[in-house]
């Protein structure tokens, strides 16, 4: 329940921000809606399966799935649609599936697939970046037709 209480508060804050934004320019044609679920591996009759649920209780080591649903609510097509998501403090990008995402390990300065990114190793050289090094995620969609929608997700592990 506490998660919802915090969400409600954040929602109010968000509303205030968009209200001020609306005064300066026209209403945003694109909507983003974030969500999070906890991903638990449940073993039943010897078979393990993933069960997604509301993150009522979250402890280090738990797996979270963050999602951002987008929708072009406007009447015109939207181009150069780029969604950027900083990896929150307290979690790291899960290794599974991390390789397919466009990521940054330097705070959003340089981008690429994890396999091509490197970090200073503290001894004058570099080392290959790992999923736990990821600071930002990015999704680039060229065009959103009116009414187009989808969901972007990433898996994280509570540090």
């Amino acid at each position: 329940m506490k998660a919802f209480r915090i969400l409600g508060l954040a929602g109010a804050l968000f509303a205030a921000v968009t209200a001020t934004g609306a005064m300066a320019q026209t209403a945003q044609p694109v909507e983003l809606k974030g969500d999070v679920k906890i991903d638990r591996l449940v073993t039943e009759n010897g078979a393990a399966r993933h069960v997604l649920s509301e993150p009522e209780v979250v402890v280090p080591g738990d797996r979270l799935i963050f999602s951002t649903a987008y929708r072009n609510a406007g009447a015109a097509a939207v181009r150069n649609f780029v969604v950027t998501n900083p990896v929150p403090e307290g979690v790291m990008l899960a290794p599974e599936g991390a390789g397919t995402l466009e990521v940054s390990v330097d705070g959003g300065k340089n981008w690429g697939k994890l396999a091509v990114l490197a970090l200073a190793n503290g001894q004058g050289g570099t080392r290959p970046a790992q999923s736990s090094d990821v600071t930002h995620l990015r999704w680039m969609l060229s065009t959103l037709a009116p009414g187009a929608q989808g969901t972007l997700t990433y898996n994280a592990i509570v540090r």
Binding site: I6, A10, P29, V30, L32, G34, V36, V58, L64, F66, T68, Y70, G74, A76, A77, V78, R79, N80, F81, V82, V83, T84, N85, P86, P88, E89, G90, V91, L144, L152, V158
Partner: peptide, 13 residues
């Protein structure tokens, strides 16, 4: 600790 996730989108219309 409260883990907070926010996504930001940029676009041209």
């Amino acid at each position: 600790t409260v883990i907070q996730n926010i996504a930001t989108a940029t676009f041209t219309s």
